[in-house]
Amino acid sequence: MSGKAAFKILRGTSQGVEFEQYETPISEGMVVLDAVRQIQADQIPDLACRWNCKAGKCGSCSAEINGIPRLMCMTRLADLPLEKPVSVEPMKAFPLIKDLTTDVSWNFHVKKKIKPFKPRPPDASDGTWRIWQEDIDRVQEFRKCIECFLCQDVCHVLREHRLQSEFIGPRFLVHVAGLEMHPLDIEDRLEELKTAYGVGYCNITKCCTKVCPEEITITDNAIIPLKERVVDRFYDPLANLLRKFKK
């Protein structure tokens, strides 16, 4: 692969945005982040974007590439059609700061509100715990999350309906699932899941799972089991029956 490719980058601030087109030389193996940084170095030094690890590990470089939420550092140009300009835009679910950067602080506030890990007292003779690998496989899947917030970006509850104040979003449902299924954790988060965390808003479209760069099965493995736990606690048939009787 060589020659040049064109990129349409959304530039601007909350005051207004516009696509601008740039051409840059490309070479074998290049990813979108390489192209963006090259454009930054040669053409527009003040093009705002975030990146850190350039290896798909930190979740800083989230953007929408040809309309799809992805990590810029893990999207190879070879996998994109280059006949027409590649469009690169910031995430839509969060307020724009400038160019490709958005204000993701809401996510950090949400995390702080979630009841933290609370272990049972150590019960092994050496003052620690015994934990079996098969009991943590699932939790380890959730803990692969790199907090890129791409799932938050794609979820219609946040993106279209803007229910940020009522729904914590797939990322944090994964986080809660990781705590709830942690073999040592004894905290109870079911009441909050139903109310403050808003698990009921998720209607299982699975869009979040599709964009997760860590391939976490967000919907099937995290959200559905949480929904089931909430149902078991609050909407159990016997309880429902009793409620009807009272009417």
């Binding site: 850190n52 690890c53 290896a55 590990k57 930190c58 979740g59 907090e147």
Partner: peptide
């Protein structure tokens, strides 16, 4: 950088 993105993450 943002919290949780430091080089240690790698």
């Amino acid at each position: 950088c943002l919290l949780g993105k430091a080089h240690t993450v790698m």
